[in-house]
Amino acid sequence: MRRRWADVWGGGAILGVSLLLLSQTLGDQFAHAEVARNPFWFPRLLLVLLTLAAVTMIVRGLATRQKEAGERPLWWRFLLVVAAVGLYLLTFDRAGFLIGSILFVPIFAALLGFRRPILSVVFSILFVSALWFVFADVFIVRPPGPGYDSLMDSLRGDDG
């Protein structure tokens, strides 16, 4: 029999976020305003309830036992995926959609153990180009960064 550690950690994380947000609602200039006109009243009510729920999760996790531990994820793989996706998303507007995405797909697939580089590069180019066409030409919503038009211009040495 094991303690329900997932509940303890989960409750702890929720408690931390809840208290952080709750600290933002205290000592406001609307302290003397009537309840309905105080912008901090409703969030404060929610966060107090959330804090109570988190504490209940922690206490229950410590007090009760379960027969089997749930299946644990591969943390290294999760962190690897988060790092790759995070890097891609946070550099998305600077690297541009075309270049960033065409590079991202095969690298991401390779990180996940996909060992057919030619297939993943071809898939990446076709998929990303199709998306570019759909967004830029069908929906007239231009994704960030240089498109095929400006890439071709730079290849031809045309700066204008």
Binding site: L89, F104, V105, A109, L112, G113, F114, S120, F127, L131
Partner: peptide, 12 residues
């Protein structure tokens, strides 16, 4: 892996 990479690109 390709399917998931495509989903991330769509999300972005």
């Amino acid at each position: 892996p390709l399917l998931m990479a495509a989903v991330v690109v769509l999300i972005a």
